[in-house]
Design a protein around this nucleic acid. Structure first.
Lengths: 341, 341
DNA sequence: CTGAAAGCGCTTACAG
DNA sequence: CTGAAAGCGCTTACAG
């Protein structure tokens, strides 16, 4: 398999130049400058010969050399709680697409929502000299962002927002409102919320939107009906068990701020001998691909995850260009299914 | 937020050297050489002064400059069908860990199992001058790997194997056997298989292991009982519907080679008015975190996904060092739950 | 329109 | 033990 062929040195500008009897600087201008410079750098004939040879010899510029000279790596760092969270994985797909279109490459690392790891992985990325960072794991109570801002590190937030920094998110307050409207108009009057982690704006905003709207509608919802939890299935199950154990207040509907927490909650409901949809409505958030396909399909608030990822890149690119970088908030929509029909 | 502070040039070897009245080459040897060279490069006292200053000034070597000089980028390229497939996301976590431990950084891109995209993304990575590639999306019938091998590109496979190339995988044949043993001993005699995509060794091997063992046990399983499908929920649902529509042969158990396909199948079973676990056993594969947490918990073959990712890195590192690179095949284990109890 | 030179930040033979 | 020099592959003022 592995013949020991010569190390296969890549074609350089100098190779092209000497082949054509030109200077490498000329070749560089033709191949890598804007049309204006390139045009005035060589006669159209020469330019064409250069381009043809570059193609023929499979020339591709060495990014390390370019970076060293230009002080721009065209590298972006992305940190997420975990890529094994479908929501972040999809957002990363959007990042990958948009970054590639703009000729950037991306590193991505998992922080597991651990502040120590967030720091460590960020430093690894900065040591790699990324041009900027996208954080998908911002904590409302963290100090990392302020420090990075002080150090002049360019970054934007994705999925979760923190006041004062540019971010690309779903309008989560609005998403919470949509769920309140839906459950209220379906006749529910006693509801509980599986709220997620209080350090994440996604959790806080979805809950806030829901609760505020519920009360606007004339509903009653005590603070004890809001149970903070992990974002995953296990977290949702535990929270739901806690809610269902309270005999004093039996809700007819559960709003989980995350589809996976909702799935965990569905399990807890079933364990109690109750039927999801019949005896207990359940609504999730994000409308991940699983929601519609579950044995009992799950109502969920769709958030444009791919678009959020793409927007984060565009926002960061604006920051890198020194342009105005206004936060982006994308519209959610509600998908009603069997679990709350 | 964004004060316009000076561009904040990073500390270089030369900065350290001039600060200490040394030459940058000496500093380089002290900081970046093996202990042998470093020891004979300076008196212990000087060495300590250098290291102290480097720490104090927050020196970190410019990887672009290092790469340009050494012709090694310490960059690895990873291509997977989709990171939004939990299985690949977990494997990537293993890659990230192992790569970081070895001081490598990784790019990861999605190919959506499209051969054209596999090519394109590979070329992007190679243009970035990665030292090697990890493919999590190998097709048994593709031509890309042979071409890359011809070009002398170092790579290994992960998750899916292809004969002739080094790979880190689960022993999928064994996994299929485990399921056959389990269903047979539970008394099932008519089973169908939701087989996944025929271009993936995971699908082919799991099916082969299952069918061979089933027949060894004396079971009967016609080729028509093996239905190829997508690996996702939709694929599983469609395949299960097809199986359940066949009135001539009503299986009592379904083996889906992937948890997500299994979840889709559970939906189809329920839509027919059948109870998963009672009327129809379902077994999945990979034991993703969801399996145990579903409302009706799913029996599944656990594959050591994190370990597979880690092994892929170790294997690639061996290839890069010109060492012997034997394929790694890790043991699966069966977890029986409600869906097939 | 084109070339020659300097320099980005490293590493590493070569010399002393 | 330490330094000076060359060079990795680019880009970009400067000069003509």
């Amino acid at each position: 398999m592995n013949d020991n062929r010569p190390p296969e040195r890549a074609v350089t500008l100098k190779d092209l130049a000497s082949e054509l009897g030109l200077h490498s600087s000329t070749v560089s201008r033709i191949l890598h400058s804007g049309t204006d410079v390139a045009r005035s750098a060589a006669s159209p004939g020469t330019a064409e010969r250069v381009r043809a040879l570059a193609r023929e010899m499979g020339y591709s510029p060495d990014p390390q050399a370019t970076s060293l000279r230009t002080r721009r790596t065209h590298l972006l760092g992305v940190i997420v709680p975990r890529l094994s969270d479908l929501v972040l994985a999809i957002m990363y797909e959007g990042i990958e697409e948009a970054a590639a279109e703009a000729n950037y490459s991306t590193f991505v690392m998992n922080s597991r929502d651990d502040q120590e790891l967030q720091r460590r992985k960020t430093e690894i990325m900065l040591a790699r000299r990324v041009d900027g960072m996208i954080f998908g794991d911002a904590h409302l109570d963290g100090s990392l962002l302020a420090e990075l801002s002080d150090r002049g590190v360019p970054f934007v937030l994705m999925n979760r927002r923190v006041p004062g920094y540019p971010s690309a998110t779903c309008d989560d307050v609005r998403g919470g409102e949509l769920v309140a409207d839906h459950l209220w108009s379906s006749g529910h009057r006693t509801v509980s919320v599986i709220a997620g982690e209080p350090y994440a704006s996604t959790a806080v905003d979805r809950v806030a939107g829901f609760v505020r709207r519920w009360r606007e509608l004339g509903g009653d919802i005590p603070d004890s009906a809001v149970v903070w939890s992990g974002f995953d299935t296990v977290g949702g199950r535990i929270a739901a068990e806690k809610i269902l154990q309270n005999d004093a207040r039996r809700p007819t509907a559960l709003f989980a701020v995350n589809d996976f927490a909702a799935i965990g909650a569905m399990g807890a409901v079933r364990s109690q001998g109750l039927q999801v949809g019949q005896d207990m409505a359940v609504v999730g958030y994000n409308d991940t691909s699983l929601a519609a396909q579950l044995p009992i399909s799950l109502s969920s608030v769709y958030s444009p995850m791919l678009e959020i990822g793409r927007s984060a890149v565009q926002l960061l690119l604006r920051v890198l260009n020194g342009e105005q970088a206004e936060s982006i908030r994308l519209e959610p929509t509600l998908c009603v299914r069997e679990s709350s029909a």
